[in-house]
Structure formats: structure tokens, C-alpha cells
């Protein structure tokens, strides 16, 4: 469980949010809503320890963030940027497997072809993309590969910043369908999105609304 205790964030004298107390459990889907510039990305960056809150503290599974070594923390909480970033001049396959050579994932078995292929299909990605240079893919395909790469690591929490913004309809649908699937039911998802994320399972969704310096939980 990720817990936020009295978390506030101010930038250049402006209060983005203040006194936030909430917890996000594995299996839940937290949808962040709010106007552009209201602090959704900042919130995700605080959750993934890329930013320190101005005040307050965060805990993961009952232990303060500070007590973790950061690669260990980030192997449990994976944050994906709005723009997909893949390793240039590496193939899609190499991109998917690259994180398994990092020290933080030592001991995790490298996924085999039979694990990867059904996931590619679930993302509406053709298997012929695997040997191709990641730069040759469309933005929509890159975004799906980036999410798939994060998912292969089996993180406890997946934080997605505008995962379907600027994507073609097919890519957006593939991502929404996959997010609503049962494959992710053990991970906690935190998603910021301008667009409606229809199809997501209603029983797991929590809506967090950013407004006037606070984050309010809304019943759907």
C-alpha cells in the first residue's frame, strides 16, 4: 500500500495541493482528473520519488520511502512518462528485456518468447515488430511497447501519465482494453488522463479530482 501522510506541494508560491492524506492499494485503479497544470504529473512524480513533496511523507507497505534504496523502490513503483521513451537503436525485443539486466531486477527470470507473444497480441502489436528498431515504430506503438516493458517487470504499482493522450484511436483502445483486463488485478494503477477511460472495471476504480489546492475523492 502507498500511503500519503499530510502531503503538500507548492511551486513558485503556488499551492498545487495541500494536506493530502490518502492510500492506494494494490488492485485499485486511481484515476486522476483535473485541468491541465493542476498538478497531476507532479503528483505522479512525487509518488515515484522523482520529486520530494514540500511537506508530508510517503510510505510503501508501512515503511517510509526514505528507508528504501531507490532502485528497489522503483522496481516496485514504475512511473511512465507521457511521451513514450524507448532505447534508440535497440530492437523492440531488446527494449522489452533491457530492464532485466539491471541490478534491481537480478534474480527475476527474463521473460521467454511464450510469455511475450500473448502480451503483444493483447496490445494489438504484431510479433514482426520484435526485431525492428524501436525508432521505426509509430508513437502509438511505442507507447504500447513502453507499457508492456513496464508490465513485464511485474511492479506492485504502475503510474501512467496520460497514457492515451495524442494516440490514434486504435492504440488508445488497445491500451484501455488491456488496462481493464484481469492481467493487472494484482497491481495498483494510478492513471492521469484527460480523456474518459471507459471500459475500466468500476469496482476497482477510485476517482481523484484535483481542484483548488486539494485532491478530492469522488464517488463515480
Amino acid at each position: 500500500m502507498i500511503e500519503l501522510k499530510d502531503v503538500s506541494c507548492r511551486f513558485a508560491g503556488r499551492v498545487l495541493f495541500e494536506g493530502v492524506n490518502l492510500s492506494i492499494r494494490r488492485g485499485e485503479i486511481a484515476l486522476l482528473r483535473g485541468k491541465s497544470g493542476c498538478g497531476k504529473t507532479t503528483f505522479l512524480r512525487i509518488l515515484s520519488a522523482f520529486l520530494d513533496p514540500t511537506t508530508g511523507r510517503l510510505e510503501l507497505d508501512g515503511k517510509p520511502y526514505r528507508s528504501y534504496r531507490y532502485p528497489e523502490l522503483r522496481s516496485k513503483i514504475v512511473y511512465l512518462h507521457q511521451t513514450p521513451v524507448l532505447e534508440a537503436s535497440k530492437s523492440v525485443r531488446e527494449n522489452l528485456l533491457a530492464p532485466f539486466s539491471l541490478a534491481a531486477h537480478k534474480g527475476k527470470p527474463t521473460p521467454k518468447e511464450e510469455t511475450i507473444l500473448p502480451l503483444l497480441a493483447a496490445f494489438h502489436l504484431d510479433r514482426s515488430l520484435l526485431p525492428r528498431d524501436a525508432r521505426e515504430l509509430s508513437v502509438g506503438e511505442q507507447q504500447r511497447v513502453a507499457i508492456l516493458r513496464a508490465f513485464l517487470l511485474q511492479p506492485d504499482y504502475l503510474l501512467l501519465d496520460e497514457p492515451i493522450a495524442n494516440l490514434d484511436a486504435e492504440s488508445a483502445r488497445a491500451i484501455r482494453t488491456w488496462l481493464s483486463g484481469a492481467t493487472l488485478d494484482r497491481a495498483g494503477l494510478v492513471i492521469s488522463s484527460h480523456q474518459e477511460m471507459e471500459d475500466l472495471p468500476a469496482n476497482r476504480i477510485r476517482r481523484l479530482e484535483f481542484a483548488e489546492g486539494s485532491i478530492l475523492e469522488r464517488s463515480s
Binding site: F50, V78, P99, A103, L153
Partner: peptide
């Protein structure tokens, strides 16, 4: 920057 942050967010150390 985005590339380095991506690697960090997948669990890389600053060296990696």
C-alpha cells in the same frame, strides 16, 4: 533527460 529518467523509473541506479 527523459531517457535517463525512464531508466531510473524502471529500477536503474544512477550509474546504470
Amino acid at each position: 533527460r527523459n531517457l535517463v529518467e525512464m531508466r531510473l523509473s524502471l529500477g536503474a541506479t544512477w550509474r546504470e
